[in-house]
Design a protein around this nucleic acid. Structure first.
Lengths: 193, 193
DNA sequence: GTGAACATGTAACGGGTTACATGATTGC
DNA sequence: GCAATCATGTAACCCGTTACATGTTCAC
């Protein structure tokens, strides 16, 4: 599934500009999908060329004009066929966890900073999520509630894990650092002093 | 963080061939990283050109010869600097969840099949994980236990969520399908009959 | 002898990210 | 005037995926 399909999906819920599509993706898909302008605008242009969406200029007061797109019949058809036809991928790519795997190669302060960054990120994401859900849950489809609930549940579990194991990891790594085995982190910390 | 850094990290735990690196990644990183031969072998070649790893031919009995790589001093240095220098990314890209978000556009049987596929995948992954962990936990570093534990915890939470909400989603989507609103899924299901 | 696991590579392709480029409008 | 938000786009680049290509050894 590419950004083109995502755009079709978002547009199937109502007309939007490229800018607004990105907003929707950030609000509703942020736990499991992301798309930048550099992929959204070209996707929209290509979809319009192929007749799957139709754009029109809309003037606004107090804001620059925007170009809103609506999905066409062939677009809806393509969306349905694409969703049915693709086997569902689910990929996590976490350099954060690779970093944790090699925690013994990191200076303790850096390790703590990384953990705190991730904890803060998850905490903020979850709060924004809960807020968004509270404001929209009564107008969501079953599928939307399911997908959003999945994101919330999993992030909550991740956050809980990080909070509960932060201290332990920090303690254990510090102990083994002090045990005399030379570590890349030690060398770097020494070089940094 | 790219596959080159990953290879350096794996090799920092001991000498390995490209084939064996892939095995290690599959066993230990499968919840949060993946790498194919098409990225591992070129990464190794480039690392060797730069002097960060050194390869040597090793004959085996009962098996084809292999080329095992060891990390060099400069490689270890580069690994340490790379790990310290990068801000930790953590990206989930789930076409599965996008599919669930648009569940109302899917025929009910397809929706059930997708859910069952994902449940089975998570179940199998978790079992393999538990098995691997049971066999290695006493020789893992704190960081490795932390990263592996994170993966296990999060996948277990995800699996639990899927199992607990599968029926509800299926019921709710079926009900709204039958309520008279035309759906893309209906059209496709009808076309398929 | 055939399939599975072991083992190593190359080359094209695709798609997303990043950086660049521009401009309107509001509020401070 | 300047920062922030709204708004749209392009082009180069990176890097990972996929497909292709090849060969060994074992077990059935």
């Amino acid at each position: 599934m590419d950004v083109k399909t995502l755009c079709l999906g978002v547009l199937s819920m109502g007309e939007r500009s490229g800018y607004e599509i990105k907003k929707t993706v950030e609000e509703s898909f942020h736990h499991f999908f992301r798309a930048g302008y550099g992929s959204i605008y070209p996707a929209l242009a290509e979809l319009e060329r192929a007749g799957h969406v139709a754009g029109r200029e809309v003037a606004q007061e107090g804001r620059p004009a925007k170009r809103v797109y609506g999905i066409t019949a062939t677009g809806r058809d393509l969306l349905g066929r694409t969703l049915v036809g693709e086997e569902p991928r689910h990929v996590v790519r976490s350099e954060f966890l690779v970093l944790m795997y090699f925690a013994h190669l990191l200076p303790a302060e850096r390790l703590a900073a990384v953990l705190d960054t991730m904890i803060a990120r998850f905490r903020d994401g979850l709060a924004a999520d809960l807020d968004h859900y509270a404001r929209t849950h009564d107008q969501l489809t079953a599928g939307q509630r399911f997908a959003l609930g999945y994101g919330r549940t999993v992030v909550a579990a991740a956050l809980d894990y990080l909070e509960r194991h932060r201290e332990t990891l920090l303690d254990e790594v510090t102990v083994s650092d002090a045990s005399g085995r030379p570590q890349a982190g030690d060398a770097l910390a020494a070089a940094g002093d």
